[in-house]
Design a protein around this nucleic acid. Structure first.
Lengths: 343, 343
DNA sequence: ATTTCAGATGTAAGCGTTTACATTTGCTTT
DNA sequence: AAAGCAAATGTAAACGCTTACATCTGAAAT
């Protein structure tokens, strides 16, 4: 706040232009002068004012991150990935968590319209037309997270939910289970839909019939798992394996199984999706799909920075799907777990 | 980026000064003119450039948050509290998570020196002299989180660890347990120390002897709980109750108890600290101490904003301790749980 | 010795606001 | 009608930086 480029210039006996050039290593400055200016700047503990710089350069070295209200682990890891990359590249991260009361569109506009950020990483449960238009017209680059819109209009990074679901269901099939149930995630939710697709495809590719009685709607929470399980097990055609659309639901399944004295995996196998920390605590350890969230954050950020720096065409759409990994616990019937131990 | 105050002025046929005054509702502007300018601004979808404004006002409406690598839940909730308050007051939040590789002092300097933020919320595991000096000399207000330094130099908001620990241990004493063990948190960690103090004080106030064999050092992780438990139960003087310095450790205790066929709470009672989500999944439900993290974030932010706006003297030290709450599960021996159910 | 030219440096405009100060306007008071 | 005054508006500087353009310097080329 105190000491600025003028002061440096005064002390060094040169003009502010030279100081600016010397400190930014652009333009030509005699080596001797450059050294001197840099020394003085260091001695006076000069920090360029990023606001002034931002005004002049029309660049703030700040990117905005808008995230929905979400599971702790996801939130933390996505931020970690982004922050890591930001730190590496001398950028700053501005967060806005769009908790229930927050108006996404408004927040978005605010972020975009103003010169506060150079770009945006945006994750929204579902994109309506308003938001879509906004994104499309945005003057600053935007990377979408986990929003598998296949319209070739946006830039997005996603977890490959389809592949993950396919793999875990295939794993169940490999065990010989014939009646594999699914407790689905919320309708309209992209993750949920893709996981469901993966489930269907796996059955199909292995010539297993799709049984409607084994397809239970649900939400991404414990309760849905609990009641889904009860519903499944109280009907005549019981499953021999259950794929819950996420780990939280699997938790509910475990709970329901415990109270109804049904053994996992002896009586029924269970697999989840997400590989949340909690799943390690279950007994038997849950077989699930690991999702590389930190990596998702990192990659999105990396790509966004490329867009900002015009290393890729910011107008070109791009879509990347991150591969998930099967984490084998005991809940599928496997003897040898590939899962990390509790500690 | 496109349409600025000059444009508005041009269209309205007034000077930019009048526009500025009209839009900021300060200075005197004829009502009619004000209306007109505001209408035009709205029609042209004008957004003031916060960077330019920042340069002029020397205020960015942005606050920085520096957090250590931490438990997901804590991280998420603290940010939520801060973000909520920021949103309410039209401020922005810049995060820097000081993951292992990040140099705190450097980050701190960067944030402070530059005019990037108006103030800082800072949480660091331990404050050394370097950092302490930095904070003390800072030109911008800083609120410390959970850093119970009693030197009356800083502004800090803390969880009342002492009171929480005291309460939960007293609760155990109320059950009639006489040999209450503690598995401590890491040495030098302020939270851990305070929780230990609370434990000691509770014993003392109820005339129970402090038994060195029942005081086990540890870290805030599952492993420490696990081995701490084994160590406690393999010595001649076994505890009838164990207070683990946090819930993660309690998890380890449960795990160890399970494998050694020791029943909680019949054979030994267990209580934790933090009320993490995980603790709800334990069977019996863990008795623990709830810590108001979101509230901690909210209050810190609120106070920081007051400092920034000079509604409190930013130079005056201030310390607030947030009260924790006892969450009763079954692990202490209670029949009736006060804990929220799983779903 | 003069010209040429690249490298070094300086000057000043601009980025989009806010705001101190100056000026104008129009109403009240005499 | 003149004076006085508050309200309304305008002018221009300032915030701290970057950068286009202008100028200067000195060594190489003639």
């Amino acid at each position: 706040m105190d000491i600025n480029i003028n002061e440096i210039a005064r002390v060094a006996g040169v003009s502010i232009a030279t100081v600016s050039r010397a400190l930014n290593n652009n333009g030509s400055v005699k080596e001797e002068t450059r050294q001197k200016i840099q020394r003085i700047a260091r001695e006076l503990n000069y920090k360029p004012n990023p606001i002034a710089r931002g005004l002049s350069r029309k660049k703030t070295d700040t990117i905005g991150v808008i995230l929905p209200e979400m599971v702790d682990e996801f939130f933390t890891e996505i931020i970690r990935g982004i922050d890591e990359e930001a730190y590496r590249t001398n950028n700053y991260v501005m967060v806005a968590s769009s908790y229930s009361q927050r108006n996404i569109v408004e927040t978005l506009l605010e972020f975009m319209g103003s010169g506060r950020v150079d770009g945006l990483i945006l994750m929204i449960p579902q994109i309506n037309d308003d938001v879509s238009t906004l994104i499309y017209k945005s003057k600053r680059p935007i990377v979408l997270l986990n929003n598998n819109i296949k319209n070739n209009k946006f830039v997005s990074f996603n977890i490959n939910n389809f592949q993950g679901a396919y793999n875990v269901v295939e794993h169940l099939i490999g065990h010989g289970y014939q009646n594999i149930a699914i407790i689905q995630g919320p309708e309209g939710n992209i993750d949920a839909d893709e996981r469901y697709r993966g489930y269907l495809q796996a059955l199909k590719n292995h010539n297993l019939p799709v049984q409607n009685s084994l397809i239970i709607p649900g939400e991404f929470n414990i309760k849905s798992g609990y009641y889904g399980f009860i519903r499944l097990m109280s009907q005549p055609e019981k499953p021999d394996a259950i794929f819950t659309a996420n780990d939280m639901m699997a938790l509910g399944v475990y709970e329901a199984a415990r109270t109804s004295n049904i053994k996992i995996p002896q009586d029924v196998a269970v697999v989840g999706f997400d590989d949340i920390f909690l799943s390690r605590l279950l007994s038997p350890r849950l077989t699930t799909i690991h999702v590389p969230i930190v990596e998702l954050g990192r990659k999105s950020m990396r790509y966004l920075l490329k867009m900002i720096n015009n290393q890729v065409d910011p107008k070109k759409s791009y879509c990347e799907e991150l591969t998930t990994g099967l984490v084998i616990g005991g809940s599928c019937g496997c003897k040898n777990s590939t899962a990390p131990t509790l500690f």
